[in-house]
Amino acid sequence: MFEAKLTEGLILKKIVESIKDIVTDVNIDISPSGISLQAMDSSHVALVSLNLSMDGFEHYRADTNMVLGVSIANLAKVMKLADNNDQITLQADQEATHLKIIFENPKTERTTEFNLNLITIDSEHLAIPETEYSSVVTINSGEFSKICKELFSLSETVQITTNTDYVQFSVEGEVGSGQVRLGHNDSEKKEDQTILEVSESVQQQFAIRYLNMFNKASTLSSFTRLCLHQEQPLVVEFKIDNLGVLKYFLAPKISD
């Protein structure tokens, strides 16, 4: 038996909205300690990794480990039934054929229940090694989204360069070439800070369209954390306060 209740159901709505354009069918791993999922996009260029801790739920019970195969596209449709201030409860029996989703609004006395049919997916699971990232950039999530959108109109590819003084996003295309350079900014307004932790410079190229899809998650956190290592995929991380973390992994482009 699995049951989890989230008072702020809006968070779950946002999480589903943040991953639905990247992954289609996912296996949701339920354990007594929390909920996690890992899935790649169809081209295996990007990977979504979500980890939610049981502590972040108003009520959480999972007697055993379970795997719930879910079509994210269908889950997104069901989530549309939820109002932004609904409480959301997820329920599934052992060997369940469906996931029961309940939206409750205690104020308006409105309750919505939906049994989402589960699917069987033989998705491959990747072992993601613990990596010591030599560059970690913490940037305002809205600002990073804006930079990616604006640069995307100038080029499909962005080159990210880090060093101890700045992080630089540069593009080159038939329009011309240029870069956005952000230095360390510890402004008193915390959410405007840009924090650079660089032990080794990194220079890699990435497809901006994936970054734009990842940035859908900027509604979940006021900060985006970029973790870079010269030989490793980029990690774009959004911390979900009191609940967990949503991470996106993106393979670099290799200039031939």
Binding site: H44, L47, A251, P252, K253, I254, S255
Partner: peptide
């Protein structure tokens, strides 16, 4: 030109 890598060249399948 830049070639897009995939994650499978970085992470082992379990």
């Amino acid at each position: 030109i830049e070639l897009q890598g995939t994650l499978k060249s970085f992470f082992e399948e379990m």
